[in-house]
Design a protein around this nucleic acid. Sequence first.
DNA 1: CTGTTAGCGCGTTCAA
DNA 2: TTGAACGCGCTAACAG
Lengths: 337, 337
Amino acid sequence: MKRQRKSVTIYDVAQAAGVSVSTVSRVLNGKADVSEDTLQQVQKVIKELGFVSSLAARGMRSHRTNVLGLIMPDVESLYSFAVLRGVNQAIAQLHYDLIVYTSGDSFHNDSAEKEAYFVSLLNGNVVDGAIVVAPVAANFTTTAPLVIIDPNNLSPECPAVIATNQVGAMQAMQYLTDLGHRRIGFITGRLDLVSANRRLQGYKDGLAAAGIPLDEQLIQIGDYSISSAVAPTRNLLALPDPPTAIFASNDMSAIGVYRAAEEAGLRIPEDLSVIGFDNLHDSVYLNPALTTIDQFISEMGSIAVDMVVQLIKGEALPKHIHKMPTQLVIRKSCRPI
Amino acid sequence: MKRQRKSVTIYDVAQAAGVSVSTVSRVLNGKADVSEDTLQQVQKVIKELGFVSSLAARGMRSHRTNVLGLIMPDVESLYSFAVLRGVNQAIAQLHYDLIVYTSGDSFHNDSAEKEAYFVSLLNGNVVDGAIVVAPVAANFTTTAPLVIIDPNNLSPECPAVIATNQVGAMQAMQYLTDLGHRRIGFITGRLDLVSANRRLQGYKDGLAAAGIPLDEQLIQIGDYSISSAVAPTRNLLALPDPPTAIFASNDMSAIGVYRAAEEAGLRIPEDLSVIGFDNLHDSVYLNPALTTIDQFISEMGSIAVDMVVQLIKGEALPKHIHKMPTQLVIRKSCRPI
DNA sequence: CTGTTAGCGCGTTCAA
DNA sequence: TTGAACGCGCTAACAG
C-alpha cells in the first residue's frame, strides 16, 4: 500500500507512452481501432504508472459509469441486509458495480435533507440508475432510472418490486387453520406501512376463508420489532380464552413472541404455535426453528437490479410492477391442535 | 417521482436567476460575498428548478466529496454486516456520506481486477478516503487516505484497527478453565487468515496458563463457517475421552457445534459447554444463548471512520494502529463441570 | 490507425 | 459584489 502525491492522469500515460490522450482513451475503452503494438505499449505504461481512470471524470463526460446505486433507509435491519445480498449477487453477474447509499440513521437527517442527498447522487452522474428500498421517500425528480422495492403505496408511479403481503398472510392463516387452530392471535407490524396493513388484511381474509369470526381482541399492535411484540403476546396469553397460535407480522416479532412465551412458561409448539413472515436469515437458528412465510427478500433485490439495468439500456420493461410470490416454509414452531 | 429529460445545471440556474454561474456557485458554497437580494433570488430559483450540484463535477473540480468509501470482500456475512452498521453509525455523526463498495462475489473477479476496481474508486475523486475490510488485498497505490480493519498481517504499513484475537481467546479459555473444564476442544477458523491463527495461539496459551497439557486431538480444523464446524465437532465427540467444552473460533462455528451436539443428542450446556467468538447479532437468539467473546466489530467500524476522517483533515493519528479490546459475554451455553 | 480539439458541470482565480 | 474565463480528467467527434 503506497501513497503517491498526485493521481496519475490519462495525460501522463499518453506522454509516457508517446501517444495522444485519445489513443489511451481508446485502449481504456477497448475500442478495436488500435494497432497491436500501441495497444501493448500503452497497456504496459498504464500498468507501470498504476493508472486508473477517474470515475468522476469519466462519468461526467460519458454520462455512463456502470455503477448502480442502492438507497436504503438503514443498514441496521436484517431486512436491509437481505436486500443488499440479493442486489449484490445480481450485480456480480452483470458488468456493473455497486454503491450502497444510506444517509446515516434515519432520525438524524430530516427528509428534505435526505431527498436532496439522493437526488445529488442520481443526478450527479455517479450512478447510472438506482434501487430504492422503501420506506425512503421517493417523490423526487431524477434523470436516472429508478426501481423501488416494496414501495409504500399500492400503485407506485415508478417501476417497483412488491411483495404479495396479503396473499402471503393468507398462506400462513391457511396453514394454521388446516392444522386445526381456531383461536389465532395476530401481532401487527408498523401500521404506517402498507405491508403491515396488507398482512393484517390477509389475516382477516384467512379467518374469513376458514369461516372463523373475527375477534378484535386477538389483534394486537406491534411495530415489526422484537420488543414491540412482547407486550402484545402477554396480552394475548392473558385473555380468558387465549389463542392456540400466534401469527407475528414478521420474523422479528416472532422472536418477541418466543420471548414472551418462554417468560410465561409456555413451550413452542406444544403449548403455542407461532408463525412469522419474512424468512430472514435468522429464523432458522431459532429454537424451535421458525415456521414462516418466505417473501424472497434477496430475490427482490436481484430482480430490481435486472429491472434498472433494462431501464438503463433503454429497453422496455415487460412489467412495470413485479409481484414477488410468497411461500410457506414449514419448520418446527407449529403443530396441529 | 418524476423524471426529467435532462439534468439541470448550474448554468440553467444562473440564466433563470439572471446572474452568472459563479454567483450561483458562491451561493451553493455558502460564501459570504453575496448580497442578500441575489442570495434569496438564487436560492429561490434553485428550489424551483430542483437543482442539485453534480457530485461528479464537484468532486472532479474541488477534489473533495465528503464521501467515505467502505470496501468489503463480501456483503454476505454477518461480520460484514456488523462492520457496516458501525461505520454507518459513525458516518451519521459526522458530516460525511457513505458509499459501500463491494465487487460482487469474491469468486467472480480475480484479484487483479478487484484491485483496479478499488483504486479507481479511490483515485476517481469520488471518495475522500476509504475503509478496507480485510481480507481484501490492500497493496495498491492510492491518493486517498485508507484505514484497514483487521488487516491480514501483523504489522500493516497502513493505519489499521485490529482485534486482539489472542487475548480474546485467552479470556475464553480462562473462563472455561475457571469453570473447571480440563478437556476443551477447539475448532479453528480459516487458517489462511491471521485472526484464526491468533485465536488458536490464544487457545494454546490459555491451556498453558491453566497448566493443562496440549492434546493435538482436541484441535480440529474449521473455516469459520457453520457447516465447517459440524464434522470437527463429531470428531471431537467421538473421541475416547471427549471434551466437556468446545471453543469455536467464531459464532458461526458455534452454531455448527450446536447442530452436531443436537444431532448427537447432547444438551447444551448440561452435557457440553460451548463458547464462541465475535458476539454477532445472532448469538443472542440461539437457544441456549451463546456465551462468547465480544470483539466489538461495529465499534471497529466506527473507530476506522474516525481515523480516516482525521487523515483526510490532515491531522496526525494519535496511534497508527488501534487495538480493539475484547470482552467475555456470559450467556447460557457454558456451565461448571 | 492516430492526433487535435471541444466540451461535460462545476469551482476558482482575476478583473471589473 | 459580480462576471468572464480557465481547467479538473476524460470521451467523442472530426481530421489527418
